[in-house]
């Protein structure tokens, strides 16, 4: 920092100096370009998760599990040892790992189709056993990877490629609030719902992930951080419009905040 400068006459070269650095990409993310659509919340969720790993200094003790879905390639981006699980089975895979290596930090990163449809049994039972793992649950109310089909979390009336006239709850059932469900289980020590669409939301979500990993360190049981996110391609909206739509429509049904702490 140079005291000889006045702020109004500073050149960019004077500002862009190593000593003035306040934010850069964490080294716990790889250099690979993310495969997600522009504006997708997955990228931000990846980043804050890896920032927590970096700040806790646990890169060498962390094992992640990527699901089937858009984040199937999460291991291309997260610079930690990772396993790719069969669709829905990430909590079982995490259980298998954590039980043989209880001193490691184990997390799953799962979408709503993976966690709340095909993997409901694995999710509920890992929660109920109080497996000492952290589940990061990305809920965007749709199947992104396969092209925008209805998910268990799809809102009533919401149009998807398999509910083209809107989700008819009489015929297709109701959207599933799985975080509230698992919060009732004694094995779950922390259940929270966050978002990553604004700077304030990102800060809170990151704090929640920190809390989850800290509870894992203390062997308190299963911690689940749901992140309500957008799916611009699936929702067929521009990213900022999608975030507005998310606030107006998703948040009333999926209210943000801690459900169990």
């Amino acid at each position: 920092m140079s005291a000889s400068h006045d702020s109004d006459t500073l050149l960019l070269e004077d500002i862009i100096r190593p000593e003035n650095l306040v934010f850069e990409k964490t080294a716990c993310l790889t250099d690979n370009t993310l495969s997600y659509c522009p504006g997708c919340g997955h990228g931000t969720a990846h980043r804050i998760l890896m920032e927590v790993v970096e700040e806790m200094g646990i890169q060498g003790q962390t094992i992640g599990i990527a699901p089937v879905g858009c984040s199937v390639l999460a291991y291309d981006f997260m610079n930690v040892d990772m396993q790719q699980a069969a669709h829905g089975r990430a909590p079982a895979v995490a259980t298998g790992i954590k039980r043989v290596m209880p001193e490691k930090y184990v997390f799953t990163y799962q979408g709503d189709g993976d966690l709340a449809a095909i993997g409901t049994a694995e999710t509920i039972h890992a929660c109920n056993r109080g497996e000492n793992i952290t589940i990061i649950f990305i809920n965007n109310g749709i199947y992104g990877m396969t092209g925008g089909q209805m998910a268990p979390t799809t809102l009533a009336g919401m149009r998807t490629s398999t509910s083209p006239f809107g989700r008819d709850t009489e015929m297709m059932g109701h959207p599933l609030r799985i975080t509230e469900m698992v919060a009732t289980l004694p094995g779950v020590c922390f259940a929270t719902r966050q978002a990553v669409h604004t700077p304030a939301a990102v800060r809170k979500a990151k704090k929640a992930i920190q809390t989850a990993f800290e509870l894992q360190r203390q062997r308190k049981g299963l911690s689940l951080v749901e992140i309500v996110s957008n799916c611009n391609s699936g929702w067929k909206m521009m990213p900022r419009k999608a975030n507005d739509w998310m606030e107006e429509n998703m948040f009333p049904f999926y209210p943000l905040g801690d459900i169990k702490k």
Binding site: M1, A3, H5, S7, L10, D14, I15, I16, R17, N20, L21, V22, F23, E24, K25, T26, L29, T33, L34, Y36, P38, G39, C40, G41, H42, G43, T44, R47, V196, H197, T198, P199, V202, R203
Partner: peptide
């Protein structure tokens, strides 16, 4: 230099610098 942009950037492509007066 508030880094709000970097916080919401899904692709982590923004690096932020901040100069503070002495």
């Amino acid at each position: 230099g508030c880094a709000h942009c970097a916080m919401v950037c899904p692709d982590s492509v923004i690096t932020v610098y901040r100069w503070k007066p002495a």
